[in-house]
Design a protein around this nucleic acid. Sequence first.
DNA 1: AGGCGCATGGCAATCGATTGCGCAAACCCC
DNA 2: GGGGTTTGCGCAATCGATTGCCATGCGCCT
Lengths: 347, 347
Amino acid sequence: MPQPDDSEDKPVRARTMAEIAALAGVAESTVSRALAGSERVSEETRERIRKLVQESGYRINSRARSLRTRRSRTIEVVIGISETNRQHFSDPFFSQIVAAIADALAENDYDLLLSRARPWDDVEGADAIASNRADGVIIIGQGREPEKLAEYAASRRNVVVWGADIPDRSYPVVGSDNLLGGRLVARRLLAQGRRRLVFLGDIRHVEIGLRHRGCMEEMTSAGAAPDQTLTLSMPFDSESAYGATRELFRGGIWHDAVFAASDVLAVAAMQALSDLGVRVPEDVSVIGYDDIALAAYVSPALTTIRQDTVAGGRALVENLLTLLDGGEARDAILPTELIVRRSCGGS
Amino acid sequence: MPQPDDSEDKPVRARTMAEIAALAGVAESTVSRALAGSERVSEETRERIRKLVQESGYRINSRARSLRTRRSRTIEVVIGISETNRQHFSDPFFSQIVAAIADALAENDYDLLLSRARPWDDVEGADAIASNRADGVIIIGQGREPEKLAEYAASRRNVVVWGADIPDRSYPVVGSDNLLGGRLVARRLLAQGRRRLVFLGDIRHVEIGLRHRGCMEEMTSAGAAPDQTLTLSMPFDSESAYGATRELFRGGIWHDAVFAASDVLAVAAMQALSDLGVRVPEDVSVIGYDDIALAAYVSPALTTIRQDTVAGGRALVENLLTLLDGGEARDAILPTELIVRRSCGGS
DNA sequence: AGGCGCATGGCAATCGATTGCGCAAACCCC
DNA sequence: GGGGTTTGCGCAATCGATTGCCATGCGCCT
């Protein structure tokens, strides 16, 4: 018969700070301070408590903690692009930037809450949606209704946005120079002698609109007749781009260049061209936007505008934490660079 | 001079339930019940409170709520694959499945917390890591140390895992049949007359190991000499796969097929082959695993084993919620299917 | 020996919402 | 009009950690 045993190796599970306190023979407040590393508790006591915590597998209850401290060390990330559904989160560009944000947050000991809805879309659902769950919000993309975003952000000092530096915004932004990006694309295509462009993407999205405008302005000022340019509006998915491209080129090759608003669209367009026997880049040049990881690995490799997601994620997080700290955020327009690869005749 | 105005259109901001209660002239408890839709509060009062909540822009403080209710309606998602860093979250496969999980959770009004560390990696950092922040945990991938995962999960009833049905596990799994997947790949390659295979991937990962084993077994039982097969171990990133493939084929084409543990690796391998002037699929067949969105759009289109992320995400969430509800989870081995495309000579 | 100061640690209020229990008003019936 | 039910609400404890302020004990100085 096993005798009751009070030896030290018995692993006592502790669930609350009070239990740890009892174990250590001190008050709850002391445990709290010890765990916070306060100088008010002697090094010796701190060490004893730390050990107890280890052994008992105790974990601070972060809900109670953040109720009291009014901070949760959690940041909410919202993909603002999609109007109809959330699936576009699976676009590699978005997941790359979310990953970058996650890493930057982790370095600062923050957690990342992936939001299921844009906070300014007032849900009519009778319930009051719970909130106060994150200390700050990072919004990816200004979407098609920047006014709503601006209104939402106007009353808060804990919102930063990945997007473009547009007028009337009420929040700090980090992003690439979309106008310049569009220009760079146009210049490259013009240098190649291409003039009959197809633009793929929904220009109602602020950033896409700017890319489009930059490209158009440059084309026009170079003397290309605007009516040689076709703009195909479409959502952010491969299927749409594939279908539209195929439809367009089915009758023959009149256009000689495709500028897609994102790499995902560009890759799908190239596939459509390939399926139709149209050669890239000989017959048609294709340029994308984002420089997702796979861009370099498709065949032909995709020429694209690089958006530095790692730098972007870091800048977003830094700005947000600065804001939360009472400081001022600094907008960051990241270097915007054309990466020339085979799809437009590069090496 | 603006006169003080008490008209009803003055938007009173309320921050706590107590304030709403004061506004409505009832007790806090009544507000709580009203918002919860309790029958204990008259429809009339409920309506009045609802209206007040709307006008005042009040949001329930979810921290206080979940402290009290002991549920947060939040699920933590952990990418268990990477041993060294977290960057692999940007692998399209992982982001697809995270997206699917996010959607399934949203349908059930749960939030998704993206974790920065695997909970069983005991951080030696002196601080007790906060916890109790999610009601349940979804782990993607069993990683290279399934025992640790098993130990972690053994003591809880709120963990589900995307992975393989291996012995000694202590948690429900959802996943594809990796062994069968490997077999299907081998059969296809054998049918094509390919016998000199290269396997790309880290077989220490449980799932990868099974894919590898299935493939090997099938090859061997078909009489292919095992020593004709080369296994290249590597992490989950494009660069490694590109480099290793290039290195291997630089000297000439001896192997006639590549089976990569993931599509990302496969695409990179194809790029390396293409850069070396090796033709796919004429000289070398390439098959991947996952069927990420881009697989159909690379050129040549990638043959691969499809993992249904949408069904998987849904199954994971359903199982987890069932567990949380006190029910029993049902392991789900999803249909495992070879999608034949050009990269192995398909249409 | 008395007094002062510092180092440690405990008390209790607090964060905001939830909920078991009990009370009061209203309504019914006889 | 009185007793018994409903119906609708309020009281107060509770979830677990944090923190301002006070209390205790000890060493040290004069």
